[in-house]
Each structure stands twice: as structure tokens, then as C-alpha cells.
Simulated assay, not measured.
Amino acid sequence: MTQPETVTAVMRALADPTRRGLFERIAETDEITVVELTRAGTVTQGAVSQHLKTLKEAGLVSERPEGRKVYYRARPEGLEPLATWMTHYGIFWRERFADLKTLLKDIDP
């Protein structure tokens, strides 16, 4: 099983809807700057930078400085602790779907 603190960091980072939105925007591009992320106008540049710091600490984004700009890129492998944790509980869903399948067969043979 994955380290609990790693899973917790990823969950906390993605629990905030603004951070989750930023992560999704970053994941849709190859690389993006803070300025580009701020253009939507809903969050200040300072707030975007703070959210990016949290995403980086959770291992969800990486940064590449180039001159005065810093480019951010999604790290899909950063989601691995969360995916591993969810897979561990996959048995719960398989059992529920099996029960649902049985129920549906009983209702409509």
C-alpha cells in the first residue's frame, strides 16, 4: 500500500476546487506559466502561485525556469499514490456491482 502521507498530500492538494481546476488546466497543456494561468481572472497571481506551490509539494506538477518565466507541467505519475489507494478499495466496488447485477437479474429475468 502507498505511504499514507503521500496519499494525504495528493488528496489535500486536489480537495481545493481552485487547485483542482489549475491542475486540470495544466494537464491540458504541455507547459504553462503563472501569467497564462492567471488570465482567466478568477484568481490573483499570488494565489495561483500559492496553489502551484501546494501542487508541486504534492508531486502533481513540476516547474522549469526559463529567464524570468517559470513553466509548469503536470506530472501524471503524481496521481499514482491516489490511484493505488483507490485500487486497494476496488474490491468494494466489484462486490457492489456484482450485487447490483444480481438484483437486476432478479427484477427482470
Rank of each mutant, 00 (worst) to 15 (best):
E57T: 07
H51K: 05
R64W: 09
P4Q: 08
T102M: 08
V61N: 03
T8L: 11
L22F: 03
Y71H: 03
T38I: 06
G90D: 05
M86I: 14
A83K: 05
H51I: 06
I107C: 00
R94H: 13
E57I: 13
G90A: 06
E77F: 06
Y89L: 09
M86A: 04
Q50W: 08
M11F: 13
T87C: 11
T87M: 12
D108Y: 01
T44E: 12
T2P: 15
T6V: 14
L14M: 03
M86G: 05
E28I: 05
T29C: 07
A98S: 12
K105S: 00
L60D: 07
L104R: 10
L82I: 07
L14S: 04
V43T: 14
I107S: 00
D99N: 02
V10I: 13
I107L: 09
D16E: 04
S49P: 04
E95G: 01
V35M: 12
E28N: 02
T84W: 08
T42S: 10
L22V: 12
T2R: 07
G67P: 03
D30V: 07
W85Y: 15
V34F: 05
L103N: 03
L79G: 06
K69W: 06
G21V: 15
E5H: 11
K105V: 12
T6C: 10
E5P: 01
E28W: 06
E80F: 15
A9F: 12
Q45W: 02
G59Q: 05
V43R: 03
I26E: 15
T29I: 01
G67M: 09
D106Q: 06
E28H: 10
T6L: 13
